[in-house]
Design a protein around this nucleic acid. Structure first.
Lengths: 240, 240
DNA sequence: GAGTGGTCTAGACCACACG
DNA sequence: GTGTGGTCTAGACCACTCT
C-alpha cells in the first residue's frame, strides 16, 4: 500500500520534472493543495517535506514553496544507488566482468580487511565495470553468506541489490560511506585496463551496508578511475 | 524561539552521545516518550524523525527505535560544515593563509569560471589551509559582493560563514556539491607547499551556495591534497 | 490585514512484530 | 492479543511576508 502523501509527492515531483511547475515558480499554497487533493494539511506537508529534503523545492515562511532551479542535472550517485539502476537512468552502456567470486570464512587475518567478526561466512566478489568501453571501476564486495544466501556469479553480473531486495525481500536500511583517494596497487593496474601510467591514485568509496534491524551485512569497496569519477550531493544547511 | 520537538531531539541526542541510551539499545516507545515529555505523539515523532535522518536511530515498525552503533566516529565534512566549525569540533590546529583577496566584476571571459552572470560584482578569495603543519587544501571562493558586502581579508582568515550568518543575518539554505579528481596546476603546486612530486591530481569539492530565497551567491572550489582528503556520508536507502 | 508556512494537539485506524 | 511505529484527520495558534 502506497501512502497518500507519497503519491502526492510523486505527482508534484512529476509536475516539476515536466515543467508544469517551472523552475523558480511557486507551488500552490499548502491550503490550496489541501483542497486540490482533498486531504489534510499534514499529509500535504509530508509530501512537501520530501520534496524539500531532495532539493526540489525551497520552503519560505510567509511566501510559499519555490521550485529550485538546478544547475547540474543530477547524476544520482548520491544516496544509495546501484550501478544497475544508474545504467537504466542514464543510458550508459555498462559491461561487468567478475574476476573473483568465492566463499570464505573470516579469519584473524582477514578480519581487518572485511570488518566482519572471525568465523563469519562471506561471499567475496570482485567486479570490474566497463562504462562505454572504459574500464572505470573495481567493485570489491564482502557479503554475509548466512544473510544473503544463493548468490551466483550471474547475479553478481546483473544486480546484487535487486537480488537482495526483490528476491530475498530483505530491506537495506542505510550505509556509512567514506570517500578517500588511495594508492593504485598492482592488482588495480591489472584489472583497470588502460589506466594511464601517471595516475597513482584511485578514488575509493567504501560503504558499509546495514539492514533495517541494523545488521551489518555488506562491505563494498569501489575504486574509481580518477578521471571517470564524479559524486554529487545536495546539502541543506538548516531547516529554515 | 526553539521548537519543542527540537529540544526533545537535542535531549535524546545528548542521551545517545553520553550512552544513557547505549548503541544497540531501544529508545522508550513513542507513547512512553509522550508521557515523559508531556506532549503529543506528533511532536515526539518529529524529534525521532530528525534522529533517524541523521543516522542516530533506526526505526522499526512493530519493534521500536534502535540506537545505531557507528563504526566511524563521524568526521563531519558531510552536510555544509565550514573549516572553522571543523576546527572547534575536532581540535585540529588550522592556519589559514589568504594569498588572493580581490574585487572583480564578471566579464564574458570569467563567466565560465565563476558561473555568475556578466556584470555581477564579486569577491575573489583564495585561502590555503594548513592543518597540523601540512598544506592540505586550497579554497577558492567567488562571493557576490552586493549580497555579502564588507568582507575583509581578516574575516576570510577566520570564518566567512560566521560573518554571513551572524553578522549579516543571511540564511544559507542549501548547496549543490560535486566531488571530482582534477589535475594539479602549476598554481596548485605553488600554493600547496610540500605536495609530493608524483601526485598528479587533487580532490576537488565544488560547491554552489544558495540563500533561502534561492539566490545563488557563492561558488567555492576546494582542492584537497589527496592523502589528506576524507569525506563521510550517512546514506539511507528508503524510508522503512 | 490577509495569506503563507511552522508548530502543536488529540484522536483514529492501520500494518507489523512478538509471544 | 498487545504493543509498536506509520498514516491521516481537523483544528488551533504562531511567526513571517507583502501590500
Amino acid at each position: 500500500m502506497i501512502p497518500l502523501y507519497f503519491k502526492i509527492y510523486q505527482q508534484i515531483k512529476d509536475d516539476i520534472r515536466d515543467h508544469t511547475y517551472p523552475a523558480g515558480s511557486f507551488l500552490p499554497s499548502e491550503n490550496e493543495l489541501v483542497t486540490q487533493f482533498q486531504t489534510s494539511r499534514d499529509t500535504i506537508r509530508k509530501a512537501l517535506a520530501k520534496l524539500d529534503e531532495e532539493g526540489l523545492i525551497q520552503k519560505q515562511r510567509g511566501k510559499g514553496s519555490q521550485v529550485i532551479s538546478h544547475q547540474l542535472r543530477h547524476f544520482p550517485i548520491s544516496g544509495l544507488t546501484s550501478f544497475h539502476e544508474l545504467e537504466e537512468l542514464q543510458h550508459f552502456h555498462v559491461v561487468t566482468e567478475v574476476p573473483v567470486f568465492e566463499h570464505l570464512t573470516v579469519t584473524k587475518k582477514t578480519q581487518k580487511t572485511t570488518l566482519f567478526p572471525v568465523g563469519t561466512p562471506l561471499y567475496h566478489i570482485v567486479r570490474v565495470r566497463i562504462i562505454d568501453g572504459i574500464y572505470s571501476v573495481i567493485d570489491e564486495d564482502y557479503i554475509r553468506a548466512d544473510i544473503v544466501p544463493g548468490l551466483t556469479k550471474d547475479i553478481a553480473k546483473h544486480s546484487i541489490y535487486a537480488y537482495i531486495e526483490n528476491t530475498l525481500h530483505l530491506s537495506v536500511a542505510y550505509a556509512e560511506k567514506t570517500i578517500t583517494a588511495e594508492l593504485v596497487t598492482a592488482m588495480d593496474r591489472k584489472l583497470l585496463v588502460g589506466l594511464p601510467e601517471d595516475e597513482n591514485r584511485l578514488i575509493q568509496v567504501e560503504s558499509q551496508g546495514h539492514l533495517t534491524d541494523t545488521t551489518y551485512f555488506q562491505r563494498t569497496i569501489a575504486r574509481h578511475r580518477p578521471d571517470q569519477f564524479q559524486f554529487n550531493e545536495f546539502a541543506r544547511r538548516q531547516t529554515t
